[in-house]
């Protein structure tokens, strides 16, 4: 099935969890926040949250920046 992750299409196995998506993308879960279809998902729920085709995921972190 297909997900949209940070604006890009990602082909994944059906029913994949957020934890597994992060693993696949080699992203440290302790350094990100995840939003699923506009709603924040708490870190403790990544493991139990299975995704559906067409879900839109935002994975955000801290980047270099000062102001604006």
């Amino acid at each position: 099935m297909e997900l949209t992750v940070n604006g890009k299409t990602l082909e994944v196995t059906d029913g994949i969890t957020i934890t597994a998506v992060l693993e696949e993308l080699k992203i440290n879960p302790l350094r990100v926040a995840v939003q699923l279809n506009q709603e924040i998902v708490k870190r403790e729920r990544y493991e139990e949250t299975s995704l559906k085709a067409g879900d839109r995921i935002e994975i955000i972190t801290f980047m270099a920046g000062g102001s604006a």
């Binding site: 992203i27 955000i60 972190t61």
Partner: peptide
């Protein structure tokens, strides 16, 4: 230190 909040870069 200030940091910006942005999408993770997926291409690593």
């Amino acid at each position: 230190v200030t940091v910006a909040v942005r999408r993770v870069n997926l291409d690593r």
